[in-house]
Structures are given as C-alpha cells and as structure tokens.
Design a protein around this nucleic acid. Structure first.
Lengths: 230, 230
DNA sequence: CCTTTTATAGTCACTCTGACCATTGAAAGG
DNA sequence: CCTTTCAATGGTCAGAGTGACTATAAAAGG
C-alpha cells in the first residue's frame, strides 16, 4: 500500500448481512424494516458499523448474533464483497462489507434498537429494498446458488442430523428447480466427505412414506465431483 | 444498515492490487518496494487510498493504470475481498479492499512517487511481503486458479489473438501442472463460446513445429462444461 | 386390505474424460 | 537436399459420470 505522501479521507465502514434460511420448502431472508430516515419504513438488510477494535468478520458475527440469536458457531458466515459507490448512502460516505450467512433453524428474529421490525421474508422479496441492498441481496443469492454446486455448503441450511430428502429440498429451494431423487441420492453418496451416515442406522419416521436414513455433514469443503445445476 | 443511534469510527479505506501476468512460461505478480516506513525496503502490493468521490472499483482501475500503464479496458479487474483486521497497519486503522487484475502483455512498470521500485516478480515470491499482503496474494492466486476452471478468464492473460498452445500455457503456469495437449484442445473447442477461430484460417509460424491456428476470446463468461484441474 | 407417499435400489444409453498413438507441417542441422 | 526435431492436430478406446426411467420397500391413512 502507498499511503505515504497521499492524503486520505475518512470513511464510515459498515457490514451488511444477507442471512438465508430454508423453511417449509421456501427460501427466506432476514430483513429489518427501517425505523428512521433515510428510507424509513422500507425493508433493508441487517447490519451496522464497525467498532474501533473490531474486524469486519467480528462485526458481522456480532450483528448476526444480535439480530438472530444464533451463535456464530452454529451457522455459516462468509464475506460476500464490498460496496463502495460514493452515493450509496445519502447522508455520508459509507463503505459496506457485505456478508452472507446461512442458518439452519431460524428462531424468531429480534428487532434491534434501530429497527422497527425484523422478519424472515420469502425470496424473492416483492418490494425493493433500501440503499443498494437489492443488489447486495441478488449477489448473495447468486453466490449461494453457485457455492451449492462445488462445496458442501448445503448442509449449513440443515440441522445437525438430516435426511437426504431434506438436503435435496435445500438444493431445489435455492436453485428453484426440481431434481431427480434417485440421481441426487447417487451423487451425494458418491461424493466423498459430503455426508456421513449416522451410526446405528436410526431412521426418521412420523411423516408419510418410508422412513429415511439420517446423515450428518461430512466435513468436506469442496465437492469432487461437483453437483452441477441442470 | 443500522447507523442510527450508533456511534461510528472513521477509517482509512484503501485498495490493494494483486496484478498477475504470464510471461515466458512463468506466473508473475507486480510488486513495489516500499520506500518509507513501515516496512521500508520490503516488497508490497501496489495500492492506495480511495479519493473522496471515488468507488473502490474506480480507485483500483486508477491505481492499475498508474502503476502499469495498462488502460483499464485491456485487462481483467475484479474485486477479491476486503481485509479489515485491526492491527494490519501499525500506523492507523486501514480497511483495504483487495482487487485481482490479469494483464496480457506486461509493459515495464512505473515506480510511483511512493515506491522506490516497481517490478514483475516470479510467483511464488521468495520473501515475505509487507503488512498482510502475503495472505492477500495467496488468496488472489487461489481465486485465479479456481476461476480458470469455470470461467473463460484464461483469455485475459493472452493477447487479443492467441494459439491454443499459449492458452494451455496459461493454465499450466497458473495451476503448476502439465496438461495433455490433445485433450486440452478437445475440451476448449467443445466448450461453446470459450474461443472463436480467427477468420481466413491464418496460422502462426516462425517458431518450431507445425504452425498453430489462431483464436480470439469467445466472450463466454462461464464455461459449460467446466475445465477442472487434474 | 388397499391406496398413497416417500425412500431406496437398479437399469440403460449417452456423454465426458484421461491415457494413449498417429500424422502433419514447419524449422534446424548436417 | 535430406533427415531430424518439434509442436499442432487428428483419432481411438476403456472407464467414469449422468439423465431418464423402472421397480421395490416401508410407513401412514382410509
């Protein structure tokens, strides 16, 4: 870096969170309704400013815990990209580091001091969001869909123990396409490290149909071969 | 975002550039030798602070043009990620948005006012870089290697018109592995939009061996099917 | 008991891939 | 001039992976 002999301007640095979950076969995103100007009354992504001794990762984890009540260990949190257009906030110059989070079982969100309301909203969101949050959310969704292909990320949407049907529902919900069940099963089980069978062969019953075998995340970060979209 | 009712600290915001090129079968990265403290005399990534009315993308394009003399249209420039650890700069709190750039034919770099020296250095760099630039550079290299698999990015390393041998050399150089020439050819030509044959069937002669047919970038951003690493 | 529903097993044709071998066309060297 | 060398190009072949599809198993609900 070349700070020397160059002036620099101070900026406000914030984090914005695109928090996704899958519930009842629908993809949902956590939004807050803004209580103050600008954009009062409109939906926006949760977020907040960095504190003096805090990295953007720390701030994102803190905001996630504050807004959802989910501990940072229980969910996937990943930097998306940084948005820095000069006019993106009408009040002042704000550079925002956006994060994508995936949570398995969504508790009811908490409205913070700054938000009139916090809620899980079905994707795609009907109305347009505050600031440039439409673009951030679209980028986040695209990233999640792409990462399902070549990483084991889909298990982050699932509880610790899940069935292959639940895992398939994650793919179908995020991608918005139906998948062939036997073929999905074959690919997942043929990919080393994607899922691991739960010992003792317990099965989930209670619903309709034949009881399903249970699996947990296999710990693999990259899928070989990848599970490509149709 | 939830600025309201929260204090916020001012930060300095900078961009750092990981500029790669392929020359003589070697992957090279553009580095500057720092002229001032901290880390005076050590290699670092080129970069600089955002100006008041400038986005990070604008600042990265400006720095790239200043340091390399390459016009922004002629090369690939893409945001990598943002580094914001509190102690990453000993002088003050600096949040840096890192960019990866790929340039085809490297002109001699210009030493800026802040750099004692600017040079193309072979990858991997022997000595450790200033600040957290080792981590940034490693992340950039990993990203470039991954993007070669599923995007047509490799053509960004090549001149406007190139041979399949040159394209293959890009893959081999970035990945550090040898590829089978007939198979590489088959896959590239079978991937729609990756490359387009130059009309009139001209061929490049002058070197050893049979003259090679010429191609230009096909304009495809995503490769279907992808060209996976061995 | 019979139907519905979901999980699981298996088949088959087609494509893609990696590992090869063969040929072509130019330059280099005697 | 002829031979060698070298890279580009064309082709083969077996095995893995995939999509489409059929069949069976095990539960719930009437």
């Amino acid at each position: 870096m070349s700070y020397d002999k160059h002036a620099f301007e101070p900026f406000a640095v914030a984090v914005d969170l695109a928090v996704f979950t899958v519930r009842d076969g629908a993809l949902r995103v956590l939004l807050i309704r803004r209580g103050e100007e600008p954009h009062a009354g409109r939906w926006a992504l949760p977020g907040g400013f960095l504190r003096p001794a805090e990295s953007a990762e720390d701030a994102a984890a803190r905001e996630l815990a504050e807004k959802t009540g989910v501990p940072p260990e229980g969910c996937h949190l990943e930097q998306l990209r940084t948005y820095s257009a000069p006019g993106r906030d009408p009040r002042m110059r704000v550079v925002s580091v956006a994060y994508t989070a995936l949570v398995p079982d969504p508790p009811e969100p908490r409205a913070g001091t700054d938000a009139a309301e916090a809620r899980w909203v079905d994707w795609p969101v009907g109305e347009s969001l505050a600031f440039d949050h439409d673009a951030i959310l679209a980028d986040a969704h695209e990233r999640v869909g792409a990462k399902l292909e070549y990483t084991g990320l889909a298990t982050a949407f699932c509880p610790p123990v899940f069935t292959l049907g639940e895992l398939q529902a994650v793919y179908e919900t995020v991608w918005g396409t139906a998948l062939d069940r036997p073929n999905f099963r074959r690919k997942v089980l043929a990919t080393p490290g994607f899922v691991a069978a739960v010992g003792g062969e317990p099965r989930r019953t209670g619903g309709r149909g034949k009881p399903a075998a249970l699996y947990r995340a296999g710990g693999a970060v990259a899928l070989h071969p990848p599970l490509l979209r149709p």
